[in-house]
Every structure is written in C-alpha cells, then in structure tokens.
C-alpha cells in the first residue's frame, strides 16, 4: 500500500516537473517584437550623414608637380650615389697603383 502510494507521488512529481519544463519552454512562444526607441531611431537616421566619405580631389596640375618632384629627387639620389661610387673606386685604384709601384721599387 505504502509502496504504491510513494510510486503514485513520484509519478505526480514527475508529471508536475514535466509540465513546468514544458510551460517554461513555451513561455516565449507568443513573444512580441519590441518597438525601436526614439533614441535608436535618431541614431540610425544619422548614420548616412556621418558615414559619408569625403573625397578630396587633387587637381591634375598638382599631381604632375608631385610626380615631377619625386622623380627629380630620385634622379638626384641616383646621380649622387653613382658619383660617390666612382670617386671611391678611383681612390682605391690610385692607392693600389702607388702601393705596387713602391713594392716594385723595393
């Protein structure tokens, strides 16, 4: 008698728990959409204006001037470098010449 009673209670408990779980799972079934606040609507309306990319157009004349200046700078660098290398080479040659002529005289 006691065993059957406790079994019944256990079944009732299980039933109660399952009903509660199901009710909880279904508690958001009739959920409604939350309206957008005025604050958010205002923020969204201003995205377009704040996201506009400002394009600064450079005039063709200025573009050519920049290109010419950069090219001149590059050419000056190349010229100076080649001059320096040439001078270093001739100095070395003179030194070697003097050294070997000295050695020959000895």
């Amino acid at each position: 008698m006691n065993a059957s009673n406790s079994k019944k209670e256990h079944l009732m408990d299980m039933n109660k728990k399952e009903i509660w779980i199901n009710n909880t799972l279904n508690s958001i079934d009739s959920i409604e959409q939350v309206p957008v606040s005025d604050n958010l609507a205002f923020r969204l309306d201003h995205i377009y204006k704040s996201s506009q990319v400002v394009v600064y157009r450079i005039q063709p004349k200025v573009r050519w001037a920049i290109a010419a200046a950069l090219t001149t700078l590059f050419l000056i660098n190349v010229y100076t470098l080649s001059k320096t290398l040439k001078r270093e080479n001739s100095e070395k040659a003179v030194f070697a010449n003097e050294y070997f002529s000295y050695m020959n005289s000895i």
Partner: peptide, 30 residues
C-alpha cells in the same frame, strides 16, 4: 530596424547593448 534590433536584443538580452550593436549593424551594411 525593428527586425535587426530585436534579433540583437534577444541574443544580447540587454536593450542598451542591443541598440549599440543594431547601430553597428547598419554602419556595417552601409
């Protein structure tokens, strides 16, 4: 905006966070 906000809001479970992310979403779209 309503759909985007509600999606963000339901995932984040916070109105403030939902609004911030909703704004980010539209910036990204743009």
């Amino acid at each position: 905006r309503s759909r985007v906000f509600n999606t963000c809001f339901n995932i984040l479970q916070s109105i403030e966070d939902g609004e911030d992310v909703c704004q980010d979403v539209f910036i990204e779209i743009f």
